[in-house]
Amino acid sequence: MSLSSKRQKEILDTVSKLRVTDIRDGLDWIGLHHTGTVSPDIRPLWRTKAAGFATTCRHLPTQQTVPTMTPSDYTKWAYDYWYGEIFANDLAKQITENTFLVVDTCNTQTPAVGSMDSMIWAAMGARGVLTNGGTRDSDETLAQKAIPIWSRWIVQPMYQGRVEWGGSGMPVEIGGQPVRPGDLVVADGDGAIVVPIDVIDDVLTYAIQESENDKVVRGLLFDRLGIERDESCESKFDVPPHPNAMTAEKLASILETRKF
């Protein structure tokens, strides 16, 4: 199953008005309680939000031994041999403006993204990076904020002598969740979540339902607590009222009886 670029953009426009927690609710509402949520130890490099469709790749731990050589020979070995042959790839050709790059490093403490490639991928239009590996050059990467990143570690090494290119366009596992090419990836301060491509429409239907009701409740509680309403209380979708819609009367009863 694949989606046209136009349909992808429509979905991403909808998702831009939702939170990761809303997507989690949508998956629950269609019975997929154990699907989607990436392990919470994979965190954003900074508080941000991104969504896109998975372009997957894999880095494999190498079994090669780095030969003894002079530093000048090492330069040639690293760039001509490792990056020219062992890590050579055409990943850039697969990145589109709707891409969320998903990098499986097989849980090795090596970089999936650094300051330079993060800017390259951003310049190509990628929307975010999700990895079970690490972020390198994190001070610069954090300062430039070229592309949102969710990773497991902050790491130091380069790829050569550590991981080999393992291919792209295959199902991978990130933080306990399978990710297939074309799956929807949504990520924010609460972590990342993956929606299988074949259930996106149903998930969004119920994510919207629960999100809209949450906004109603937030507005009522803001009023009760004397907090000025903000954008988080504003409706984003024209949908029917929630089947269990909260009202001011219901909220007053809950607060008075302390039954929640």
Score class of each variant (00 low, 15 high):
2 S>T: 14
3 L>W: 03
4 S>L: 06
7 R>A: 13
8 Q>D: 04
8 Q>I: 11
12 L>T: 04
23 I>G: 00
24 R>P: 00
25 D>S: 09
29 W>T: 04
30 I>T: 05
45 L>A: 14
46 W>K: 05
48 T>E: 07
50 A>L: 04
50 A>Q: 07
51 A>S: 15
53 F>Q: 06
53 F>D: 09
54 A>M: 03
55 T>K: 06
61 P>F: 15
61 P>A: 11
63 Q>N: 14
66 V>S: 02
67 P>G: 03
68 T>Y: 04
68 T>P: 01
71 P>Y: 13
73 D>K: 03
78 A>I: 06
86 I>C: 05
86 I>H: 01
87 F>R: 00
88 A>K: 09
89 N>K: 02
91 L>I: 12
94 Q>W: 11
101 L>M: 08
103 V>P: 02
103 V>G: 05
104 D>W: 12
106 C>W: 00
107 N>L: 12
109 Q>V: 10
110 T>N: 11
112 A>H: 13
117 D>T: 02
119 M>Q: 11
124 M>R: 14
129 V>H: 07
129 V>C: 11
133 G>F: 13
134 G>N: 06
136 R>P: 04
139 D>K: 09
139 D>S: 12
141 T>A: 13
146 A>L: 01
148 P>G: 10
151 S>V: 13
159 Y>K: 01
160 Q>M: 07
165 W>F: 12
167 G>F: 14
176 G>N: 09
180 R>E: 13
181 P>F: 12
188 D>E: 00
193 I>L: 02
202 D>H: 10
203 V>Y: 01
204 L>W: 06
206 Y>M: 01
207 A>Q: 03
211 S>W: 01
215 K>I: 06
217 V>S: 09
220 L>P: 04
221 L>F: 03
223 D>T: 11
224 R>A: 11
224 R>E: 14
226 G>F: 05
228 E>C: 05
231 E>K: 04
233 C>N: 08
237 F>E: 08
238 D>K: 06
239 V>K: 05
240 P>W: 12
245 A>I: 15
248 A>E: 15
249 E>C: 11
251 L>N: 08
251 L>R: 12
253 S>C: 05
254 I>W: 10
254 I>T: 11
260 F>E: 14
